[in-house]
């Protein structure tokens, strides 16, 4: 597990990335094994649902593991 500073930095990174993902229209579907709520980004905790949504829309998946 990351230490506290690593975890904080990763969180900051995730927020920045989420922002970038919105900016890069159309955004990829983001699947995260622990779940997260960031406005404007489609965060899904179920990888199968993420794959189905990505398949429908032609978007890639960004699968995040931490």
């Amino acid at each position: 597990m990351p230490n506290r500073s690593s975890a904080t930095a990763i969180l900051v990174l995730l927020v920045l990335v989420a922002g970038l993902a919105v900016w890069l229209e159309p955004a990829p579907v983001i699947a995260d094994d622990e779940g997260a709520e960031i406005a404007g980004v489609e965060w899904l905790t179920d990888l199968d649902v993420a794959r189905a949504k990505a398949r429908e829309s032609g978007r890639p998946i960004l699968a995040v593991f931490r």
Binding site: M1, I10, P28, A54, R55, L62, A63, F65
Partner: peptide, 22 residues
């Protein structure tokens, strides 16, 4: 999580995979 599909360096504390749904 199907580790055969979502395969990465499992020693890591963070990984993101850009994938096709297939």
């Amino acid at each position: 999580v199907d580790v055969r599909t979502f395969h990465f360096d499992f020693d890591l504390t963070f990984a993101a995979l850009l994938m096709h749904p297939d």
